[in-house]
Amino acid sequence: MGNIKLGMIGISEGNGHPYSWSAIFNGYNRSLIKECPFPSIPNYLSKQKFPKDAIKEGQVTHLWTQDKKISQNIAQTTYIENIVENYVDMIGKVDAILLARDDFKLHYKICKPFIEAGLPIYIDKPLANNIKEAKKIFALEQYEGQIFTCSALHYAKEFSISQAELEKIGPLQYVDACVMNSWGKYAVHIIEPVVKMIGSQGQQIEVTKSTAGQKNIVTVCWESGLQTTFTSLGNIDCPIKIRLFGEEGCKELVFKDTYYAFKKALQTFVDIIQKKEKPLNKHFVLKIIEIIEKGI
């Protein structure tokens, strides 16, 4: 497949992905982006060079949000040619869908007609907040690799640790990770990169949860003896951080480059469509959702 025509679906509270994801494919208007209601987006976009830093294999050609004025603003800012009245109107006009909303309770309803129509779809994190709903969505798949979902931090370069670095701190004994905002929507940003990083640790032997106000702390003890703690801090402003403790030392990893992570995640979706990458590992996704569910 050559230049992939993408349909963008947004927007949900506190989530500016329709602006940023569209810009990663289409570029953006430097004057209009200043009006974007998510200040971090023009900040990190301004550090890139377009069209050089855009994804070349796709273009967002169609857009739907539940608010016509927001749709018009996103479309003008990121050069989207078509705004549709109903998201299902994209069927037959695009090659793939970007469901850029993290209000996961609506994921099944919105994604169902596209999956049944055979379109590849990227569903924003988290796919669901419980195993039953996630399996219900996966059961819609018409073919292997049709559904893609992730936390973009799965691809963060700051959370890509080499085997040499792991060997330097020795066998892992404890991993601690924290993220701001709510557990339901944002815990995936730390759980997913940590589970990727620690590899096979056997079964979850024990999961404990404690809450204090908006703070949520979930500790997972694995069959291997490794203990991992995931903390969502509510409205406490803090960087997304992972700390690894081994027998020989420790290492702190701090997330910084949002653009890189978003672009890498979107590029992976495109590469799966073009069969340059293997389809999504559903077992891995369900392992992440299992921890999210236990923390609710």
Rank of each mutant, 00 (worst) to 15 (best):
M1C: 00
M1V: 01
G2K: 14
G2C: 00
G2F: 01
N3Q: 14
I4C: 02
G10T: 09
G14H: 02
G16L: 02
P18G: 07
P18H: 08
S20T: 01
S20N: 02
S20L: 08
W21E: 11
I24Y: 05
R30E: 01
R30G: 01
L32M: 11
K34P: 07
P37V: 10
F38Y: 14
S40E: 14
N43K: 15
S46K: 15
K47H: 11
K47D: 09
K49R: 09
K49N: 08
F50W: 05
G58S: 06
Q59V: 13
H62E: 00
H62A: 12
T65Q: 00
D67C: 13
D67K: 14
K68E: 10
I70L: 12
Q72R: 11
Q72T: 14
Q72H: 11
I80G: 04
N82V: 12
N82H: 14
E85N: 14
N86P: 00
N86V: 09
N86H: 14
A96P: 06
A96L: 06
I97Q: 08
L98E: 07
A100G: 09
F104S: 13
F104A: 08
L106V: 07
Y108F: 15
K109N: 13
I110R: 12
K112E: 12
P113W: 07
I115S: 08
E116T: 12
E116R: 06
A117E: 00
L119S: 06
I123G: 05
D124S: 11
K125F: 05
P126E: 08
I131M: 11
E133Q: 13
K136M: 10
I137H: 05
I137N: 03
E141F: 09
G145M: 01
Q146V: 00
I147Q: 06
T149D: 01
Y155W: 11
A156H: 12
K157E: 13
F159H: 05
S162V: 10
I169M: 07
P171W: 02
L172K: 06
V175L: 12
V175K: 02
D176M: 07
N181T: 13
W183D: 02
W183P: 02
K185R: 15
K185W: 10
V188N: 03
H189K: 06
E192C: 11
V194M: 08
V195P: 00
E206M: 09
V207C: 12
T208H: 08
K209V: 11
K215W: 01
W222L: 14
S224M: 01
L226E: 03
T228E: 13
F230T: 04
S232G: 10
S232W: 03
N235L: 15
N235Q: 12
C238T: 15
I240M: 12
L244F: 03
K251R: 13
L253E: 04
F255S: 04
K256Q: 14
T258V: 15
Y259W: 10
Y260V: 00
F262N: 09
K263Q: 15
Q267K: 10
F269I: 03
F269Y: 04
V270H: 03
D271S: 12
I272H: 01
I272S: 02
I273F: 05
K275P: 02
P279C: 03
L280H: 06
N281Y: 03
K282C: 05
H283N: 14
L286C: 06
I288S: 06
E290F: 04
E290H: 02
I291P: 01
I291G: 02
I292M: 09
I292V: 13
E293A: 10
E293F: 13
K294Y: 08
G295D: 05
G295H: 02
